[in-house]
Computed example of a mutant assay.
Amino acid sequence: MIKLIECPRDAMQGRTEFIDTAIKAAYINQLLQVGFDTIDFGSFVSPKAIPQMRDTAEVLSLLDLYSSKSKLLAIIANERGAEDALQFEEIDYLGFPLSVSETFQQRNTNKSIRQALETVESIHNLCEVNGKTLVTYLSMGFGNPYGDPYSPELVADFVEKLEEMGIKIISFADTIGSADSDLIENLYEVNARAFPNIEFGLHLHSNPKDLQPKIEAALKAGCRRFDGAIYGFGGCPMAKDELVGNVATESLISILDKNGFETGIDRNELSEAMKLSRVVFN
């Protein structure tokens, strides 16, 4: 079974106009009916850094989880954020952005890679004690625009360090839309073979016209965990291309359908969520 992770948090967080808390909750409640494996619903980070997410705890209090099988994931950037998120039993996963680019790690979390790895280990231990699971996102996982070192072998070194800590889920993140299908297939095949106990996912930012070969390359290499956002809302401003955004969930589902993969998605509920997204992101 394919695991689809819907990312309203990623779609919302970069918007300058604050989205009303009740509207966020209504949208996420609709997403909870669609059949996604996980909803990346919010983050516990500094409101100065991401003002759009300052109401994550309040949004959580408005969610109806009893009629949904979807799990909840919250992004955190340090131990304090993890401790805040761990207060809520409704949250199943914590997500931490670890970059293979030193420059981006400093920009994203004000930490060096060495410090960030220490933070990952600390947060993973907190998750273990509290019955949660840490999802580690390897951002700039397919290259970076800074001239920092990059290679699939470098990524494998990061994965090895994470495996030694006991990390079970790693998602390769193409932060700037630089991956091609050959690199995606190579990266997954190498790591899935070397680290069979880790579940690897894919968080792409991509131009829509390039999406199908990328997803099919990941499927061929054995990837069964994919992140998306309805209509592709959100993305990374550093991509410097307005077409490079999150993977549109509806496009991802269409590609999976064409390749014969079962998603478990309720199409009627998805249609309602797509209608509602137009109101949220108007």
Rank of each mutant, 00 (worst) to 15 (best):
L4I: 12
M12R: 08
Q13C: 12
Q13H: 14
G14A: 13
R15G: 06
E17P: 09
D20A: 13
T21G: 11
A22P: 06
A25R: 12
I28D: 09
G35C: 09
F36H: 11
T38L: 09
I39D: 04
G42W: 07
F44E: 07
F44W: 07
S46A: 09
P51N: 15
M53N: 15
M53C: 15
R54S: 13
R54E: 13
D55S: 13
D55N: 12
V59A: 13
L63H: 08
D64L: 12
K69I: 02
S70G: 02
A77W: 02
A77F: 08
E79V: 08
R80N: 06
A82P: 12
A82M: 01
L86Q: 05
L86S: 10
F88N: 07
E89P: 00
E90S: 13
E90I: 06
L98S: 05
S101L: 01
S101H: 01
F104S: 03
Q106L: 07
R107H: 02
R107L: 06
N108L: 07
N110Y: 01
K111Y: 00
S112D: 00
I113K: 04
R114M: 04
L117K: 10
T119K: 01
T119S: 02
V120H: 00
E121Q: 09
I123Y: 09
H124K: 05
L126Q: 14
T133Q: 06
T133V: 07
L134K: 08
L134Y: 10
Y137V: 04
L138T: 11
G143L: 07
N144G: 11
P145L: 10
E153S: 09
L154H: 10
V159N: 14
E163R: 12
M165V: 15
I167T: 07
K168A: 14
I170H: 11
S171L: 08
D174E: 06
D174R: 14
I176P: 00
G177T: 15
G177R: 13
D180F: 11
V190E: 05
N191M: 05
I198E: 08
I198W: 01
L202V: 08
H203A: 06
L204C: 07
S206M: 06
S206V: 10
D210P: 00
E216P: 09
A217K: 04
L219R: 05
L219S: 12
C223I: 04
C223H: 10
D227A: 04
A229I: 02
F233N: 12
G234T: 07
G235E: 08
K240G: 08
D241N: 11
V244P: 01
A248M: 02
S251D: 03
L252Q: 03
L256I: 00
L256C: 00
D257G: 00
N259P: 00
F261G: 00
F261R: 02
E262W: 04
T263E: 01
G264M: 02
G264A: 14
D266R: 09
E269N: 15
S271F: 13
K275F: 15
